[in-house]
Amino acid sequence: MSKYITIKDIANELGISKSTVSRALSGDSSNVKAETMQLITETARRMGYHRNEMAVSLRKQSSHNIGIIIPEIVTTFYMTFISHAQALLRKQGYNVLIATSDENYVQERENMEMMEHCMVDGLLISVCNKEHNADIFRRIVSRGIPVVLFDRTVEDVDASQVRHDDYIMSFFMVEQLIRSGSRNIVHIPGPSHIRNGYERLRGYRDALEKFHISFNPDLVLASALSAEEGCQVMSDFMDKGIKFDTVFGFTETSLIGAKNLIQKRGLRIPEDVRVCCMSGTALCTLVHPTITAVEQPVEQMAEEACRLLMEHIADSGKKAEDVVLRGDIKERESTAVTKDSATIK
């Protein structure tokens, strides 16, 4: 017997034609007697038959599957997005296929090709690299597969996007730090191949300029995403003996790595060094001291991304939209102004 039970297997079991089995399993009661339909249905269930959804998709030109591709699963941000998006899509009658790229553009490309082969009706993608895979993004869009980019996006692809206003929230965070006393602010940036990284660095620099604080390239460290990378770049920086009073991270994972290193070196947070980051999640509340962070409206992002995807599926001629959402600064213990901190009056 074959690995998967087929209509042919059921027909051979019962000694009837494949066409009769096919009509019965599709519910064609007008051409199949009731007792025959019941016998076929019971036999199919007993033998473990499952309908070939791929074949059905080919006939109907719709799989009722939506693909979601994310760059990592370390933080709760993407898991929250997936959970909320999946609930919304299921209400619309769609199943969800999920793939993670693990911050690897080759794996990201393979994920997109896999989703193509599965003939998904649409894609929600947060990219791990805005440079290497632009060609396949364009190819998928040109084939008429609706794509909505979220969080990490690509600028030169004709697809709808839902993103966080990284520039303005980075600017606001650094502005708030300066107003409360920070002067020598270290920035742990994201990689240059992530659009968010550029926008957050730009906000950092413009906030310094607003307060006439000279930009010091020595205070912008090597890029980091993981806690291990954050720890390493912070260690390399502190070994140089450069004066600093604050650390502003691209994301919470790299910032937590840097924070741990700072504390191991004997410095107190926030008395000696203040720390904060963008892209904060519940992780920021599970460490000591708790970390001040810009939190993105992840559920709203999922809602907007699903709305746009459904609209593109319903109307292939719909023009791409760029939806920009505003986050919130959550002030916590890591940036508290203490009696040891100098404050600008």
Rank of each mutant, 00 (worst) to 15 (best):
I178F: 00
L261Y: 15
I188Y: 07
I185A: 08
S192V: 10
G181D: 08
R200F: 10
H187F: 01
M238G: 03
C276T: 15
F172G: 01
N184W: 06
T153Y: 01
T253V: 03
H187C: 11
V233T: 04
R195M: 08
I262L: 07
S226E: 11
K264L: 12
H164V: 09
S254K: 10
G203K: 10
D218F: 06
H212A: 14
R183K: 14
S254T: 11
H187R: 06
D239C: 02
A222D: 15
H193M: 05
G280M: 07
I213W: 10
S235A: 05
T253R: 03
D206R: 09
V233S: 00
G266W: 07
L225T: 12
A227L: 02
E209P: 05
R152E: 01
S160Q: 06
N216A: 12
I256W: 06
D272S: 00
I194S: 04
R205H: 12
Y167I: 04
G280R: 05
E252R: 00
F171D: 12
M234L: 00
F211R: 07
F172D: 15
F211G: 08
V220G: 03
L221E: 01
S182F: 08
S279E: 15
H212I: 03
V273Y: 05
A227I: 00
S254I: 07
F172R: 15
T251G: 14
S254G: 07
D156R: 00
Q161G: 00
G266S: 02
A227S: 13
R205Y: 06
A282T: 15
D158W: 00
F244Q: 12
V233D: 06
H212C: 11
A224S: 13
R274D: 04
V233E: 01
N260Y: 14
S192K: 12
S160E: 05
K243R: 14
E252P: 00
M278H: 15
S214K: 06
P217V: 11
E252I: 12
M173H: 06
I213M: 14
E229H: 04
C277N: 13
R152G: 02
G266F: 06
D272H: 01
F171C: 05
P191E: 14
L201R: 08
T253A: 08
K243Y: 02
F172N: 15
D158P: 03
M173C: 08
F171W: 11
L221F: 00
I188P: 04
M173L: 14
V154G: 01
H187G: 02
D166M: 07
R152W: 00
A159R: 06
P270L: 10
S170T: 09
S180I: 07
A227D: 07
M169D: 13
D158S: 09
V162W: 09
F248T: 13
M169N: 13
V157K: 04
M278E: 14
V157Q: 04
M234Q: 04
V275F: 07
V162E: 12
G266P: 01
K243C: 09
M278I: 14
Y204H: 04
L177E: 01
V247S: 01
F250P: 04
Q232K: 09
